[in-house]
Design a binder for these strands. Structure first.
Lengths: 241, 241
DNA sequence: GCAAAAGTGTTACAGGTACACCCATGT
DNA sequence: ACATGGGTGTACCTGTAACACTTTTGC
């Protein structure tokens, strides 16, 4: 942080990877851009950070304005920053990406900007080059990978569930996010035994068929111990080298 | 990313959390600031991103200029971005923090800016409010926590070792970074059996005393399976809520 | 031989996998 | 009664913790 005067000004934006599990698919909020650049193309919701606004606040504000979602009720964490020169034709733009995990909520489409927002299955965009504007393909891929990884050793899967949920709901989250199947019986035992993962509400929910399932709330734990390991994982996230 | 014209310009900097294991302590590169603000205070190395320079490049450049280290030989990954208004008295400054992990290398102190750089034990600064300039206490704490967490489920511990190392060297990394003791015998078996964690070189290294130890190089794996779990961990990293 | 560090064997236990089986509901 | 999903029991296996014991060096 030496060298006053060498500073390079940049525009500061936030972009949001908002994920949910919906219709047995992992889905993401996309907007259709109403302005250039990339007018009419699909993109992640986001926008410029305002003067004297913290970037976390900006993420919450954009979540409300562009996706109609209340950031205070969602899991929201910073993902990483994308600032490669040329990533935005308008000039030097540094985008701080955030990852939000939400239960299956409808997107309110009242008079706000959210009218252009919709849920889209990630399979319809991921690994399809240039499906999204800017470098949002990359940002989305990074967000999805972060979510997949964090399900292993944190209690974050509950962020995809409504305030009360059944163990099957939770299992479906893991199955959909990881694209695997999990033995329902072993999963049940494991999550109820994990320390402070789940708190029983005492209630039950009857579905159309079968025995009613006990309802739970998220417990206080943030780390999941023992972890829920995907047998053999992949990847990592280096950078310069 | 809608709303052209509402853009808020910010200065873009990179700051570096460079960690090593040295003298059985976790240490970090600190510099003494030569200019205001915070002249004379300790801080993380870093500086302004240049025009048309990628932030990853800027991190590698500052690592060389301010710490005299070659970023291409180190593990370097983006940590997170700090852009709270008021964090820098010069105005709106967004700092993209990077985490670098290095073996115990001397800092060259030739005519460069690195003459102000030194290794400092993290215990001498962490949890001491305002030991560092700006919000660098927080950035350092986040970097240390990231490093501690990643040793669990990645092969990153080898980034703290020289190109060839013994299993004791590797064990000391875990012990120092986690401030624990680990049974040498069980650790040996575990890391040797972990898939592609270590590659034997065939060589041996004799120390002053005791049986010479076999030498290893880092294997190809980036994820560590099975993971090396700290029995019961702590923390997590949320943000707005 | 002795001290010290490297490395192997062994036993007991915790947690995971696979799957048989019972439970509670709707039709 | 039967289909369906919820939930328990159990046997087997993998991996961990604890620690006795052997190996290879320097002195």
């Amino acid at each position: 942080m030496n060298g006053v005067g060498h500073g390079q000004h940049a525009l500061l934006t936030v972009d949001l990877v908002v994920l949910t599990v919906r219709d047995d698919q992992l889905q993401v909020v996309l907007i259709e851009r109403g302005k250039d650049p990339f007018r009419g193309r699909l993109a992640l919701p986001g926008g410029f950070v305002r003067s004297n606004e913290d970037i976390d606040e900006a993420a919450v504000r954009e979540l409300a304005e562009e996706a109609g979602l209340d950031g205070r009720q969602l899991h929201l964490e910073q993902l990483r920053t994308y600032a490669t020169p040329g990533r935005d034709p308008r000039g030097r733009v540094a985008s701080v990406a955030y990852l939000a995990l939400a239960p299956d909520l409808p997107i309110p489409v009242a008079g706000t900007d959210a009218r252009n927002a919709r849920w889209a299955p990630i399979d319809s965009v991921i690994d399809r080059p240039n499906a999204l504007a800017f470098d949002h393909d990359r940002i989305l891929a990074d967000g999805v990978e972060r979510a997949r990884a964090k399900l292993e050793y944190t209690t974050l899967a509950t962020a995809f569930c409504l305030p009360t949920f059944t163990i099957s709901d939770l299992r479906r989250v893991y199955e959909v996010v990881w694209s695997t199947t999990i033995d329902a019986r072993n999963f049940h035992r494991k999550v109820v035994n994990a320390e402070n993962f789940l708190t029983p509400t005492g209630g039950k929910r009857a579905s159309e068929v079968g025995r009613p399932a006990a309802l739970y709330r998220a417990g206080g734990a943030t780390v999941l111990y023992p972890p829920m390991l995907r047998s053999s994982a992949a990847h990592a996230g280096d950078v310069a080298g």
